[in-house]
Amino acid sequence: MTSIKDLDNANVIQWCPGCGDFPILTAIKQAISELGLNPKDVVVVSGIGCSGKTPHYINTYGVESIHGRPVAAATGVHLANPNLTVIAVGGDGDGYGIGLNHFVQAVRRNVNITYVVMNNHIYALTKGQTSPTSLKGTKTKSTPHGAIEHPVNPMALALAADGTFVARGFSGNLKHLAGLIKKGITHNGFALVDVLQPCVSWNHEQTYEFLTENTYELEKSKYKPDNRDKAFEKAREWGLKKIPIGLFYEEKQPSYADQLPWAKPPVALDPIDDIDIKPLLEKYY
C-alpha cells in the first residue's frame, strides 16, 4: 500500500496560491496511491515551466529535463527500463509548442507513458505570453493585438496520430481527473491526459469559474470512447457549456516496447561485465 503521505516530501511548493497545478499534483499522487505503485518504481519527468516543478513535489524518482523535452526524456527512461511507471508532465508551451514534435511522435509510437499536460493556455513561468493553445484573439504580452493563429487542438492531434488513449481533465474536478490519470497509467501505450488548468496569475479567461461553468463530463453523457470519428467530433467541441472532459478515445494496441521483445527484461538491468564480441569480429577476418 502506498499512502498519499508516502508521496509527499518536505519541499516548499513554489506555485501561486490557488494555482490549478495543485489539484493536478494531488490527482497524480492519488492515482499512484490508489494503484498501489511503489514510489521507488515511479519516475515523474517534467520539462521547464511552472508545470516543470512537479517532480520535486512528489516523492518518487524524477527527471526535471529542459523546456519542451519531457516526453523524449520519459521515452528514454521507459525504454531502458519498462518495469518503471513513467509519468511525463509539462505545460502547454512545453508540450504543444517547443516540444510538439516529441508529443506527436510519442503518440504514434505508442510508448507506454502517461503524459499529463498542465494546459493553462498561457506561458506562465515567463509571465504571460501567448501559448499554442491560446484562442485566436487572445491578448497577451506577446500578442497585444490578439493572437492571430488558430490554437493547437491537442485532442484532435493525438487522435490524428492514431493515439490509443486520449483524455481531457479539469483541475477543478479532482476526482474525475485522478480517475483519468489512473486509467492513463494502466493503459498500455501512450496516454494523453490534457488538463484544463487555471493560471490565476496570467490567464483571466480560462478561469475556474469559466471552466466550472462550461465543462461537462463525457462519462455522464451517452458518449462512448470507442469510436475515433466520434472522438474527433468531440475534440472539435469548445464553447459555452460545451467543453467536454473525460475519456475521448481508448483502444488496445501493442505498445512500442511490446514490439522490442529483447528489451522486455530491462536493458538497464542487463549484466555487462562479460560481453563477448568475437561474433562481431568474424566478418572482418
Binding site: V45, V63, A73, A80, H102, Q105, A268
Partner: peptide
C-alpha cells in the same frame, strides 16, 4: 531508437542513462 531529431536523441539519453543503462 532512430528518433525524430537530435534534440529528441540527447534528451532520450538523459532519460535512459538516468536508469543506469549505458
Amino acid at each position: 531508437k532512430h528518433a525524430e531529431s537530435e534534440i529528441a536523441v540527447i534528451n532520450m539519453l538523459c532519460g535512459s542513462a538516468m536508469t543506469g543503462a549505458r
